Structure formats: C-alpha cells, structure tokens
Computed example of a mutant assay.
Amino acid sequence: MTEGTTPAAEGADTLTRLEQEGEIAADYLEALLDIADLDGDIDMDVEADRASVSIISDSTSRDLQKLVGRDGEVLEALQELTRLAVHRETGDRSRLMLDIAGFRARKREELAELGAKAVQEVQGSGEPVKLEPMSPFERKVVHDAVAAAGLRSESEGEEPQRCVVVLPA
C-alpha cells in the first residue's frame, strides 16, 4: 500500500488501472479487426485482478475462427501482441486475458472437467495422475479445479512439455 492511501483507495486505483488496460486493448483490437476486415464486438471486464477482453460476433460466419487458429495458437499470439500494446502505452507489464468467439471460455470448461476426472481417478487409485502437456493457461485452470476438489497438483517438466500431476491427499 502506498503511504497515505487506504486499502479501498488502492483497490480503486487497481480497478482503474485494469480498466485502462482494457480500454487500450480494446482500441488495439478494434484497429486489428478493421485492418483484417472482420466483424466483431469487443467486451471488456475485470476478472480475478486482471483485465479481460473478449471479441464476440453475432454473425454465424466463421471469420473470428481465423483469429483463434488451430487449438488457440493465433489467439495466444494475439494475446501477447495485445499485452505488448498495453505495455507500450502504460509502461507496466499486463496480465490481460483475451478470448475470441468464446474459445477460451469453452476451453476452461473442458479443462475443469479434465481436472475433475483426474481427481476422481486419483481418489479411486490413491496414485498420482500425470496429464498431457499443456499451456500455462490450461495448467492454471486444471490446478484451480484440483484445488477446488480438495487435492494438490503440481506442474512438472520443461516448456513446451510441462504438464500437471494430480497428487493424492
């Protein structure tokens, strides 16, 4: 906490900073959509102490899928570029999360189910379960699902082969 500020004031400063990150990211992504001649609306939010920006489309076309790419590869790259744009404007490192066409939200649901299945397997066998290699985002979702079920998990290995191991209680 900064000298002379209250916890409430500091929380408001954080929210304002995250909202600013979202605004910068939205402007950057709006320009990208214009350049690529793609239709999409931008939704901004603050979730779990990070700015969250989503590109959504009400059209039935698969145009936004181009921005997701195979298994989210293009989405990950765009997220990094957007974070760099925010960093360039603010001078601060951004932890902004980007979702396009609901890809990341669907992936989060699938990973939570995977974590729950691994928990059941560990509880049944009493043995650790090692999952397939995952991205940092994917591992975080699985770790959260495992923790919510009351078990422990850890990551092991080196990128890009880093994976989650679910441990017995």
Rank of each mutant, 00 (worst) to 15 (best):
M134T: 01
Y28C: 11
R108W: 01
M134I: 05
V141R: 05
V53R: 07
E158V: 11
L114D: 09
P133Q: 01
D13C: 10
A118I: 07
S94I: 04
D63I: 01
D43M: 05
G115N: 09
K66Y: 13
A8M: 12
L18W: 02
G115R: 04
V74R: 12
M97D: 10
T60V: 08
T90E: 10
V86S: 10
E73Y: 00
Q123W: 00
H143E: 05
E138V: 03
F103M: 05
A9C: 05
E154M: 15
A31F: 08
D63M: 00
G72V: 01
T90R: 08
S57Q: 03
E127V: 04
Q20D: 13
R104S: 02
A147P: 00
A9D: 15
C163N: 12
V46Q: 05
I42E: 01
K107I: 03
E30K: 08
S52T: 11
R88N: 11
V166W: 02
L131N: 06
Q161H: 15
A77N: 06
G150I: 07
G126V: 10
G91T: 01
M1A: 15
V129H: 03
E89M: 12
E80K: 10
L114A: 12
S94M: 04
E89P: 05
S94K: 07
Q79T: 06
K140P: 00
L29M: 02
D144S: 14
V86W: 07
V86N: 07
G91F: 10
R70N: 06
T60W: 08
V53I: 07
A31K: 11
L75C: 03
G115D: 07
R50V: 02
G150Q: 04
A147D: 14
T90V: 04
A145V: 08
Q161K: 15
E23D: 12
A25S: 02
H87A: 09
A85R: 12
D144F: 05
G150H: 00
G150S: 06
E127C: 06
A112N: 08
R104E: 04
L96K: 01
P128M: 03
D37W: 02
A9W: 14
M97K: 08
L98A: 02
D41S: 13
L81T: 09
Y28H: 15
R139Q: 07
D92L: 12
L111N: 09
L96F: 01
L75G: 04
Q120S: 11
C163T: 09
V86H: 12
E110R: 09
L29C: 04
V68Q: 03
G157C: 14
T5Q: 14
T6D: 10
G150C: 03
G91S: 04
S52K: 06
Q120G: 07
A145C: 10
A116W: 02
Q120K: 10
D58K: 10
P7Q: 14
P7K: 12
Q79C: 07
D49Q: 06
S54I: 07
H143P: 05
L32M: 14
D49C: 00
P168Q: 02
A31C: 08
L15Y: 14
D63R: 02
I56K: 10
A48T: 06
E113C: 00
S153W: 04
K130V: 13
V68T: 08
A116D: 10
L75F: 02
S57D: 13
F103A: 00
Y28M: 11
E121C: 00
I56V: 15
R139P: 09
A12Y: 08
G11V: 08
